[in-house]
Design a protein around this nucleic acid. Sequence first.
DNA 1: TTGTAAGCGTTATCAA
DNA 2: TTGATAACGCTTACAA
Lengths: 332, 332
Amino acid sequence: MGEPVTIMDVAKAAGVSPATVTHALNGKRPVSEMTRKRVLAAVESLGYVPSWNASRMKSRSSGIIGCLAADITETFVNQIVRGIEQGLSGGQHSLFFVSGIEFGNDLKKAYHFLKSHKVEGILFCHHLPIWKEFNLDTQNSDIPIVSVNMDTPGMISVIPDNTTGGYQAAEHLYGCGMRHPAMICGPEDRLSVQDRLQGFSSRVTELQMQMPTLRYYGNYDYDHGFEAAIELMRDYPETDGIFCANDYIAAGCIAGLQNLGYEVPSQVRVVGFDNRDFSSFWNIPITTFELPLQEMGILGVSILKQVISTGSYAKTKHVLQSKLIPRQSSRG
Amino acid sequence: MGEPVTIMDVAKAAGVSPATVTHALNGKRPVSEMTRKRVLAAVESLGYVPSWNASRMKSRSSGIIGCLAADITETFVNQIVRGIEQGLSGGQHSLFFVSGIEFGNDLKKAYHFLKSHKVEGILFCHHLPIWKEFNLDTQNSDIPIVSVNMDTPGMISVIPDNTTGGYQAAEHLYGCGMRHPAMICGPEDRLSVQDRLQGFSSRVTELQMQMPTLRYYGNYDYDHGFEAAIELMRDYPETDGIFCANDYIAAGCIAGLQNLGYEVPSQVRVVGFDNRDFSSFWNIPITTFELPLQEMGILGVSILKQVISTGSYAKTKHVLQSKLIPRQSSRG
DNA sequence: TTGTAAGCGTTATCAA
DNA sequence: TTGATAACGCTTACAA
């Protein structure tokens, strides 16, 4: 498939030196208009594209930022990645996305891969503290790392404010008439679940209401919501407002409530989290919270860029607010 | 942030030549066990990782495969990318994913970017024939390109069989008792819509049934399904089976039918497409088709690898079957 | 088994 | 305004 065209080929074709070709292309020193035109013509006709590798051999900077994530099909990952791309667009850096899947979930391998490409910084995008496994490397890493979505001690972190989300959920449900709150949680080991729970229960306490001690932990899915709702209403029949840890659970919860003959929202109000696509057109549209995922990606890039350019690496923590989206499931 | 560690540093620390370091690391020539150990110790203590750029300067191959897509947040894109990652894992190549977003949707720019990184092949991942815009480049491209998801004339294509999907939808609905079929289409300019329509109507004809001439084109979303269902039942009240171009439309269609007082599936059967997450737990679980997205990614990689290694570039077309997932919306 | 030196394609420095 | 040359970090003949 065709020999690779080098700067020498272009130089020969244009009858100039390789140095002139470089400068005609990147304008780092003046080139006469006539020469430039000849060079550009040669570039065009030969289909020459400079080799990134060779260019970056000399200059210390690779111009590449790496992103390490587990699985691109997870909504939170691809939304964040989209934000990262936006934050990078038009700038000097480009993105090298690497998924755990490529490396059999061996993050150490993936990290070394990025390092071998001389990335100038890494955006780390997980919902579990997997970083612990290769802690040693990252702590003393000469490459700045920003953790997006996980509050990772010892790293700069950009995270959504799940706690305030929970707090606002309680506030909102109270305003809609809830007096006997409850929560159906997701997986117990997720920080997002704990934070949402903590925010919710703290506002519940402030408002001098009681909530069940049972947490109804389970998967982040419909079935768990359905079953938990039935258990919950059996255990605490006075419940008139349920905060679900995400929209899948909320959807199941609503269905479970309807199955028991409850009316949503007049008898029981329901709030979810994450603003999944179906939430807007669920049979009872689901009140939810939109995570600032793209904003997190954009902010992560901006912070990383700053760290790279200044060299200062303060382990700061940046919290972005989630946004309440009120829908029918919570208000009459 | 620390000076970059080079092979020279390691060589000095281990008291050997750079050549020995290379060979101790990649085993392309025998190294005594003692020397190897000293080298590896030096590598470890210095945190040395070989520069990918420098390594690839000599060898013609970059070991990189590029992937060009519009938007990673689209399900079909990230599923395919996941397949690509799987196909690549454990092999010699790594993936450079590039999104249109990074380049302000200037595909030409993105293509040149990949070329500058000396990618050995490109996987092109779109649902629209945007490639036409930079047709000239790709036709004479010295880099092999495989189009995944779009049947792109002049390129190797890996595509889902939407036509057979439509065909099977008609077959399935007929088996469920449908005698007066109809279809609610998506955007008229999508090939997927046209193919699904064609497959459906061809089986309808074979089964000697009639279907409306109206196509009910519209967005691939819930609202369109809802409104189109109402129009459709007004125009053709005898309709007892509706094939919707995707699951969003199907969800809206079911809601629209229920709104009119029809029972699904006993009075009207509904089939969707794409197997969205909500389809399994919709209030009436939606019969749908699962696209072989990950498989398409895997196959795309495998074909591209073969083209790269053999150098032969036949413009073949590879069609993968979608899989019917029967649920309640179609059978009583 | 190991070392020396040339070369990959580009850019920076120096000289013209 | 331009050209020659060294250098980037690594691999690989070739030599020892």
